[in-house]
Amino acid sequence: MDPILEIRHLDVDYGLGDRAVRAVRDVSLTLHRGEVLGLAGESGSGKSTLAYGLTRLLAPPGVISGGQVIYHPASGEPYDVLSLSDNGLRQFRWAETAIVFQGAMNSLNPVHKISTQLTDVLKAHEPSMSEHTRQARAREMLKLVGISPDRMDAYPHQLSGGMRQRVMIGMALILQPQVVIMDEPTTALDVVMQRQILGQLIELRERLGFSVIFITHDLSLLVEFSNRIAIMYGGRIVEEAPAATLYRDALHPYSKGLLSSFPALRGPRRELAGIPGSPPDLAAMPAGCSFHPRCPRAFEPCSVTIPVLGRPDATGRTVACWLHPSADAADSPGVSVASGEH
């Protein structure tokens, strides 16, 4: 499969200098054409920061302190999003990579009609398009996400939460982007609405062929809706595997913990268990593997040396855990800078 978005060794900090909080560290992740890549982790694991970072939407004091985000356009040479000019970035945004944000309630400007908010994207990116065509396109998008086009002149407060999030999805697809990042798109909605909207989105993806980065803390949703899942903890990716593989046979103790914290709909009954402790303070990370204070299976190297992502077997999955050392040892010797930088 062709890669469409390659994140290479991305580092994102909040603040500068010694007191900076390292929210995302050395994340490398590849999104392939037409795939749904799930990104899961607890609150504060850096998953949203990663999404904001790769579109350069970080609010100050967030800064990208290293890495590359290589985007492969449908035609033309791949380029690094992080080194685009302001103008280039404006053109890249939404036209190539659109985002559906967390807060369905607050993503729409309350004082503008939704038609205005749908068409101003077109105005910015396709200035030559006539007003009539813009309106028609906006209507078409509303119809696509299952909202009657006669709601064009409605204001956001006249729509329900689910409808607003559908409008946002329609808005995200209006320029036919290659990549859609969904940052907890259904968190504010009830469970029935969640499924309905996600189901619709997956169906649209099959029809329109865009790729999705789906960020959520709800691993059960990912297991159902994504092709591949990456698990984040303490700003790093700790495991990455095809969804089914991860569900059946998670290697990292943290992934196992996440999986056993929600019930399965089918299959044998099993005990539900949470993960003891709480997510690490990003400003004062434990030395070694950041999960070791909470890990039921921690042993000697865990508190000393940070494990790097390695391939434990020949299937191509990766995991960063001393329990599952890389099969090809030469590939990853481990980073022995116990993160005592603070």
């Binding site: 404006r90 939404w94 659109a98 807060g103 400007n109 503008h112 994207v121 910015a124 990116h125």
Partner: peptide
Amino acid sequence: ASEDYITVAHAKGLSERRVALSYAARN
């Protein structure tokens, strides 16, 4: 400026001027 819809407006690739006037200042 810290409202979600301002971030969305930036993400939409609207010009800085349009975000500042039509989204932030307008509200």
